[in-house]
Design a protein around this nucleic acid. Structure first.
Length: 271
DNA sequence: ATGTTTGTTCCGAT
DNA sequence: CATCGGAACAAACA
């Protein structure tokens, strides 16, 4: 499911594929059709897990993939799947193509934002660890601002943005932190270690172009799966790669939380 | 068939 | 009033 590395991969691919193209036709939501047609795409960027497509007339098309949203770039005559919600028909001097937004479970968001709405959206998100320099002290303050377990806090987009279940699970494993550890029990040294490991797994995720689970829901705009699933540290694994213990899976906030009972003690490596 | 799945939002309880 | 935990959301699959 799209987290920061997957959304980053899609965004970078889209920069090459659609910047400079003009939307000569749009299909889907009626209100959007009218507003989108005639615009040239001037930029594509990422905000947390959102893809932002900047239009020449001013507004920004915001796409949030949620769990099953996908973006495809196809030739005009290629078919789209039955979950398609929006199609942008694009043209430049050389060729025509189309951008398809498909969302099987309809949890994704697609909307046009004016400048002030975009700023409002930006204010909803905490630091983007991948884009912004953040010190261990700042990171520790952020996570301690919530009186909850570290897993839940890291998934809170208002605290730090871009992380989802997979990368949080792997980063906690690399740091030797039990996912149910209360943030108040984390000290500066451990926070620094966690921060480094979060950056590490995000970078690795990006390097492997994201993670595609057995459901095959995540693919890049050209339909290719990612490879990070072949490098999972503890996520979906049966045995701990370090000590060979049987991996445990507890539900935290309704989400699978894989951890090694030997390497990730509840004390959180404090002792 | 019922349970599970993921990101986000919203609602009720503390 | 602020904060936190859990339900709900849609659809497919086992």
């Amino acid at each position: 499911m799209p987290e920061l590395p997957e959304v980053h991969t899609i965004t970078e691919d889209l920069k090459d594929e659609i910047i400079g193209y003009k939307i000569y036709k749009a299909a889907g939501d009626k209100y959007m059709r009218l507003l989108l047609t005639g615009n040239t795409i001037t930029n594509v960027s990422r905000l947390a897990k959102n893809i932002l497509i900047k239009l020449s007339s001013g507004p920004t098309l915001r796409i949030h993939l949620a769990m099953t949203g996908r973006i495809f770039i196809k030739n005009e005559e290629e078919p789209q799947d039955k979950w398609t919600r929006l199609i942008l028909y694009l043209v430049n001097r050389e060729k025509k193509k189309k951008l398809i937004f498909s969302d099987m479970r309809m949890f994704g968001k697609i909307e046009l934002l004016q400048e002030k709405d975009l700023n409002k959206l930006k204010n909803k998100y905490g630091a983007d660890i991948f884009e912004e320099e953040i010190t261990p002290q700042q990171f520790l303050e952020l996570i301690k601002s919530k009186n909850s377990n570290i897993k839940t806090v890291l998934l809170d987009q208002k605290i730090v943005s871009g992380l989802g279940n997979i990368y949080v699970t792997d980063a906690l494993f690399l740091s030797g932190i039990h996912p149910e550890t209360k943030t108040k029990h984390i000290n500066l040294k451990l926070a620094g270690k966690l921060l480094e490991n979060i950056k590490k797994v995000l970078k690795e995720g990006i390097k492997h172009r994201g993670a595609t689970l057995p459901d095959k829901m995540y693919v890049d705009p050209l339909g290719n799966p990612g490879n990070y699933q072949n490098f999972f540290k503890i996520y979906m694994r049966e045995k701990c790669p370090v000590c060979n213990s049987k991996v445990q899976n507890v539900k935290i906030g309704g989400r699978s939380s894989f951890f090694c009972p030997a390497c990730q003690k509840l004390s959180g490596g404090l002792f």
